[in-house]
Amino acid sequence: MSRTEIDEGDFSLPIVLPELVVTPTHTQIFMFSAVTWNRHHIHYSRDAAIAEGLQDVVVQRALIGNYFVRLLTNWLRDSGEIKNISWKVLSSAVPNRKLRCQGVIASHESAAAADPGHLACEMTMINDAGETVATGRATVCIRDFS
């Protein structure tokens, strides 16, 4: 079902966001390096990555952030926007390994208590071995919140 806005009644906290599952590929990692003009060899040369003690080429820190953004925008659609987002990479993500991105909105953003449309979301990204690859936090602003 296509949807452009969050359904009414979706705002009782906590809100568990629909999980986003992504599987980064060598091609996507290459494309992301290309559009960000990131020539760091750990993102395209498996030999170089292994020589640096990594398992394979690694998913960019910046791309990890975009997976969290997609988790949020898949839920927000046209109903709001991301005001800020932070994330921390805890272990390397590598190609062809599934990543599960999960998020929970448990509270209103305390720094913007005067505006109940600001919600705080806690996020985690877990690989197929159950290891936490990244954690994140975001503030989203819901338009016409009531």
């Binding site: 020539r39 640096e52 960019q60 952030g65 926007e81």
Partner: peptide
């Protein structure tokens, strides 16, 4: 030599770089 960005090309006695995290305000 490792192709890492100029923005982090500072002469610390450590050569292997990885991304740590980010705080982004939009």
């Amino acid at each position: 030599a490792d192709g890492s960005p100029l923005e982090i090309a500072v002469p610390v006695p450590a050569m292997r770089a990885v991304g740590g995290g980010s705080e982004y305000t939009i």
